[in-house]
Design a binder for these strands. Structure first.
Length: 476
DNA sequence: GACCCGGAAGTCAT
DNA sequence: TATGACTTCCGGGT
């Protein structure tokens, strides 16, 4: 078990990151699983709930959740919540652990949690809502009763459009249905960001199973480029409500289930073809395309149309990425290594001469599609080979060639696949056949890698990015 | 010294 | 077991 010296991300999220222990948490840290909470000011909460608010939290709509939170602020003299972090319905709210809540509202998470648990318990006792797979009680079992243990992140699926009218009906249709935070990024084009799309885009029918949906909705996920020109973020750094989980260095964080729970940093992603979380490029896109520009102190577009962005806070961004992947020792060096792997699959390239500046060579739609068309790669025919030296030269010149954009594109994102080619490219010529000594397991992927690398670099130029961006807009 | 590059090996999830 | 997508470490260049 590695012990990580944890440094919180610098930047705006810092002030939101909760302390390892909040004062009240100490009182609640080791409760008996089913024991009622100790006497607290919450005792008569249920009776005091705002009028019109259903006593069963899991029945709450997003609006109800907002009402509840506002009420909590007043009732318990809590700091103001960032409502962006609570764009969810009651069911989703109830799924949040104390830690989750603490991350969203440092210092008040335990209070919120206990209020919710009390309401849920009371409702259950009254038999108002049938047991659901996603109820808090259902998910407590597999996990050790550690104060740091976390329940699994549920399979986030579509939850109708904005509301569900009946918990029972919703549970029947979508057992794990929740509405997710952060706030929906429904923009003018109706193409919200990927995670938000899961919940809010009407195009995603509630009945579509997650996997199917992920595949079929690929062209919309993580794609909010339709907003067109990037407008400088109006928000100050202090307003950026990064919901980074408290990166506490605790052994349970290495638990597989704990690993899963970190996805709640961006809980609105869906299971996809890869999937223990979001891919790096996707993560970056999400931050870049955040509708409220909350992450511009970490990463920001320099030119959205050409996909050029700058990592404003390399260390902070790396920390966020580390949190996302539960690799808490992540740093910019490591993250940038992952970014460099994207060079060879023409997802990214470095903007020469500018520190921390990179350029997406593909728009999100392409990237999404690529992930799900692995079969297509077998049909690809090689095009002319571009020696890496030439590619580098072109990159340095930052030229945007006027050649016709090729419709086909590399489809294999495998880094290992291209490694053998890279080796050959260095030692021989780019067209050298695979070495007979190469490991069998890489043989097929090596060929795939050849196809990938042999694409003309210009095909993935800024213009290509912009062109596809425009076509996306048109389609939408 | 920070950044950048890319090889090599390992990890983890699917 | 194979594969994908990193993660980790490192040596070298700028």
């Amino acid at each position: 078990m590695k012990v990580v010296s944890l440094q919180l991300p610098s930047g705006p999220s810092m002030e939101r990151l909760p302390l390892p222990f909040s004062p009240t948490e100490l009182l609640w840290r080791y409760p008996l699983p089913w024991a009622p909470p100790p006497p607290s000011p919450l005792g008569d909460t249920k009776a005091q709930l705002p009028a019109g608010l259903p006593p069963e939290p899991r029945l709450w709509t997003r609006e109800d959740v907002s009402v509840f939170l506002k009420w909590c602020e007043r009732e318990f003299d809590l700091p103001n919540f960032d409502m962006d972090l609570f764009q969810m319905n009651g069911k989703a709210l109830c799924l949040l652990t104390k830690t989750d809540l603490g991350e969203r509202c440092p210092g008040a998470g335990d209070v919120l949690h206990n209020v919710l648990q009390m309401l849920v318990r009371d409702a259950a006792l009254l038999g108002r809502v049938p047991s659901s797979p996603v109820t808090p009680t259902a998910r407590a079992a597999p996990y050790p009763p550690s104060p740091h243990s976390h329940p699994p992140t549920p399979t986030w699926t579509v939850d109708g459009f904005h509301h569900f009218h009946s918990a029972a009906a919703a549970a029947a249709a979508q057992p794990n249905s929740v509405t997710l935070s952060p706030a929906p990024s429904v923009d003018s084009s109706g193409s919200p960001q990927r995670g938000d799309t899961v919940t809010y885009a009407p195009a995603y029918a509630p009945s579509v199973p997650p996997t199917t949906q992920a595949a079929s909705s690929g062209s919309n996920h993580s794609d909010s480029d339709e907003e067109g020109q990037y407008a400088p973020p109006p928000r100050s750094p202090k307003e950026a409500p990064i919901t980074s989980p408290a990166p506490q260095n605790h052994p349970t964080q290495q638990h597989p289930h704990y690993r899963a729970q970190h996805r709640e940093f961006f809980p609105n992603d869906m299971p996809e073809s890869n999937t223990n979380g979001r891919l790096l490029w996707d993560f970056l896109q999400q931050l870049l395309n955040d509708p409220t520009q909350r992450y511009t102190n970490y990463i920001a577009w320099k030119n959205r149309d050409t996909g050029v962005f700058k990592i404003v806070d390399p260390a902070g961004l790396a920390k966020l990425w580390g949190i996302q992947k539960n690799h808490l020792s992540m740093n910019y060096d490591k993250m940038s290594r992952a970014l460099r792997y994207y060079y060879r699959v023409n997802i990214l390239r470095k903007v020469q001469g500018e520190r921390h500046c990179y350029q997406f060579l593909r728009n999100p739609t392409e990237l999404k599609n690529i992930k799900n068309i692995s079969l297509l790669r077998q049909q690809m025919s090689p095009t002319r080979v571009v020696p890496q030296t030439l590619v580098k030269t072109e990159m340095k010149e930052e030229r945007c060639d006027e050649e016709t954009v090729d419709e086909e594109m590399p489809t294999d994102l495998s880094m290992s696949a291209s490694e053998p080619w890279r080796k050959r490219a260095r030692s021989d010529t780019a067209t050298a056949p695979p070495s007979s000594t190469q490991h069998d397991k890489h043989r097929i992927s090596t060929l795939i890698g050849d196809n990938m690398i042999m694409k003309r670099e210009v095909d993935y130029s800024a213009e290509h990015y912009a062109l596809n961006l425009k076509s996306e807009k048109c389609e939408q």
